[in-house]
Design a protein around this nucleic acid. Structure first.
Length: 295
DNA sequence: GGGCAGGTCTAAG
DNA sequence: CTTAGACCTGCC
């Protein structure tokens, strides 16, 4: 990627970067800890740091950070190495994707922390985004490390596997995660004990990694693919949630196509960039409400 | 109040 | 292997 970097005043400014729109990035369903501020910037937590991201003209302003953290953390987190141009062009050969890519042109897939992604997406099952977000905030506030104040608000890191593994299931339910509490507890214990090793799973190929992830209680096909895509760099994963199901059926397939068939269709059609296709389709379907139909 | 939301589990053909 | 029901919770 070609762009200019400037540092100063607790900020890093990226000038001339392409394919980077905070709204698209933080509202395309991949993350839960980024919140819009009054000035349309986003503040969020990752890697035990609070960051604010603002788009201004052709600049991206990262506040509450420095060049060292940019180089060590945010460059990778925002996947700035990747040139989205080629992949977008490839996807745009399909007429539907062409529109979806145009609509979500500033989407980037974040490289998130595997444990946080595992727990967050276990919580996401049969749940709504605002409630997922508030549960994760409660979880972080109660069991995560305090990392400081930004603009008058306190921020907490996502809890570690060790911290979560020690919490009683009934107490976990106070974060309003309901029946998912036992899954969260079980996952934390398995990771903390070393019975399951996320770093190890990350090194496997997509199918093997998916199989391993689905050994976690509360992790099925959709959640596993989200973890693969959003925290393990498996861009051939194609998570199918209700929105993607609707839009795929609406444009490519018949109504009531089984998840298996849609998954296979998506993977075969989009191959090694299926995950990117999924993000553009999800954002397109959700924001426009297309493909929405009554049961 | 019943339905539903970014699925998964369980039990059963 | 495919399919129906139940499921915490909060907002319509």
């Amino acid at each position: 990627m070609k762009y200019n970097i400037m540092e100063g005043n607790n900020k890093v400014i990226i000038e001339g970067i392409k394919d980077f729109d905070p709204v698209h990035i933080f509202e395309c369903g991949q993350c839960f800890r980024w919140n819009k501020e009054d000035d349309n910037s986003f503040t969020g937590v990752a890697f035990e740091r609070v960051l604010n991201v603002k788009s201004e003209d052709d600049k991206i302003i990262l506040s509450n950070t420095n060049l060292e953290d940019f180089n060590n953390i945010w460059y990778n987190y925002f996947d700035l190495e990747r040139d989205y141009g080629e992949m977008k062009e490839e996807l745009s050969e399909d007429e539907i994707l062409k529109e979806a890519v145009k609509f979500g042109s500033g989407i980037r897939i974040l490289k998130q922390e595997p444990f946080e992604t595992l727990i967050s997406f276990i919580i996401s099952a049969n749940n709504a985004i605002p409630r997922i977000k508030s549960s994760i905030e409660r979880l972080s506030k109660r069991y995560g490390k305090y990392i400081g104040e930004y603009n008058g608000k306190d921020y907490y890191a996502f809890p570690t596997a060790g911290a979560l593994s020690k919490v009683d299931v009934e107490e976990l339910k106070e974060t309003k995660i309901g029946f998912r509490a036992k899954y969260v507890s079980n996952a934390a214990k398995r990771v903390f004990s070393g019975e399951a090793d996320l770093n190890d799973i990350k090194t496997l190929d997509t199918d093997e990694a998916r199989e391993k992830l689905m050994e976690f209680q509360g992790v099925g096909p959709k959640v596993s693919d989200c973890i693969l895509l959003f925290s393990m760099g498996k861009y051939d994963a194609f998570p199918i949630d209700v929105w993607v199901k609707r839009i795929m059926e609406y444009f490519y397939l018949e109504e009531d196509t089984s998840m298996k068939k849609i998954q296979r269709f998506g993977e075969e059609k989009f191959k090694d960039v299926a995950g990117f296709a999924q993000q553009y389709l999800f954002y397109y379907a959700r924001e426009l409400g297309i493909g929405k139909k009554k049961k």
